[in-house]
């Protein structure tokens, strides 16, 4: 059960969009998705289904929550909101989707099955397939792409400008600090972590620190406890995921000589903040890490 939770957590993070789409301002009235399908931007869709938690969060961020008619069971909605659940990341209830008559389905290339996307297209439903984004640049452009689809480019630009201001504040703080601190981002009891080309890794770098798994093999490697101890991270971040989180933290406290334990820098963080690659989470998590490290 715990591991399934973890799997879905990761799955939720595999998202974002392709960066090779034309910039918003010069774009014509169409947009191409990661499968090479061209989309006309008019008329604007008024019934949208989201296939990933980060997409849902971005839609609310853009103020288009009212257009959302279907979400996954892992999508977090603002208090008071209720939407039809259409499945999780791997399986979707096709009947329910048909019944909801969506004008646009937003899916991800990495998190959802191409089979399902094809099936929906075969049923005449428009599916825009976003592609994974992890770096700040890709997250930004992915966000803009969604904004264009929803007709919210002005709002999106405003949001991104504010976030940029916050990021530069972090960068300034980093410049004052000495040698970069080491961070371990722990995703499971078996020390699964995020390596290069992941949201967490990009955030840790932005926060002026070094991800100890940055050069590990694969994107979601499993480190050994020995390796973590040898690296002696200054900070251990554990996304909150059920009762294993406390156990994992207690596990580290058996090693009082670890820097992170000595300075009490084992942090349990909100799972969505750690794993959903929205621009807001990117900046939020960067700020959190930077703050703890430079306390």
């Amino acid at each position: 059960m715990k591991s399934i939770f973890f799997l879905l957590m990761i799955a939720g993070s595999l998202c974002g969009c392709g960066s090779d789409s034309p910039p918003a301002v010069t774009a014509g009235r169409s947009l191409t998705d990661s499968t090479g399908t061209a989309f006309s931007l008019e008329p604007l869709p008024s019934r949208i289904i989201s296939f990933a938690p980060y997409i849902t969060q971005n839609i609310y961020l853009l103020g288009a929550g009212d257009k959302l008619v279907g979400v996954t069971k892992f999508c977090k909605l603002p208090a008071g909101e209720k939407k039809q659940v259409i499945g999780d990341l791997l399986t979707q209830d096709i009947e329910r989707i048909i019944q909801l008559k969506p004008e646009l389905v937003l899916a991800t290339k990495e998190g959802n099955k191409p089979e399902v996307v094809n099936q929906l297209k075969g049923l005449g439903i428009r599916v825009f397939v976003l592609s994974e984004a992890n770096s700040w640049k890709d997250i930004r452009s992915g966000f803009m792409q969604m904004a264009e689809l929803l007709g919210k480019t002005a709002d999106a630009q405003k949001i991104l400008e504010q976030l940029e201001v916050r990021l530069s504040a972090v960068r300034e703080k980093n410049a004052l600090a000495g040698s970069p601190s080491k961070v371990f981002f722990q995703l499971s009891e078996q020390f699964h972590t995020a390596a290069k080309d992941t949201f967490a890794d990009e955030v840790i770098t932005q926060a002026g620190a070094v991800n100890i798994a940055h050069n590990a093999v694969g994107r979601w490697p499993m480190l050994s406890a020995e390796e973590v101890i040898a690296q002696d991270p200054d900070l251990i971040i554990i996304p909150l995921m059920g009762n294993i989180t406390e156990q994992a933290k207690a596990g580290w406290e058996k090693f009082p000589l670890l820097k992170a334990v000595k300075s009490n820098k084992i942090v349990i963080a909100d799972a969505d903040l750690c794993c959903l690659p929205t621009p807001e989470n990117f900046v939020g998590l960067t700020e959190l890490i930077s703050e703890i490290l430079h306390k």
Partner: peptide, 11 residues
């Protein structure tokens, strides 16, 4: 399965 990403494992 041990080499796969969590999403692939799930699939």
């Amino acid at each position: 399965l041990t080499l796969a990403s969590p999403l692939e494992t799930n699939s």
